[in-house]
Amino acid sequence: MNPDDRKLVRRLKRRDEDAFTELVKTYQHKVFNVIYRILGSKAEAEEVSQEVFIAIFKYIDSFRGEAKLSTWIYRIAINHARNRVKYLSRRSQRAHQDIDDGPETANEDAPLSAYIASPHEEIVGTELEDIIRDGLKTLNEIHRTIVILRDIEGLSYVEISKIVELPEGTVKSRLFRARVALKEYVESRYTEKVV
């Protein structure tokens, strides 16, 4: 942990309000962006990001400085986002059951596209960007998280491994699988268009 972070943590543990403001200002966009990429909804991302900072404030005394402050914050953010994905997935399953009264077919890793409600939220971008954004939603939650942390947030394997609590080798292989799955998704979308 660098000296600035150490000072900030010391102030946070003393419940210095200015330190909390500083922390939120520093990390709000990073936390929001990563959660938004995992959940795919701005409204959900806002709600979960707020919960993340409340959790940081609540558990700051348990932060022992063994990892970087940013890694610790990312870990809390990812855990909250993953819990929300599970919650939304369960809710979606229940809603489907109410309609179909059929057996459960989806699992916790169900594609995010199953419960994305507001397509209007999507920012107008290039065609490939849109396809990639859709492709991200089709990945299961852990593959999506790893690809976001590596390719969007630009974190190192060591940091990702600490955040998702998986060995580095597993992170590498899952990243590879996620990239291949995305490539296949992009290809299939272009093939559809040609046909």
Partner: peptide, 17 residues
């Protein structure tokens, strides 16, 4: 083709709080 996916991911616009 492979690079366009990784490049496309890296080029996704940053979303601000």
């Amino acid at each position: 083709q492979f690079f366009s996916v990784v490049g496309g991911l890296r080029a996704l616009p940053f979303t601000f709080a």
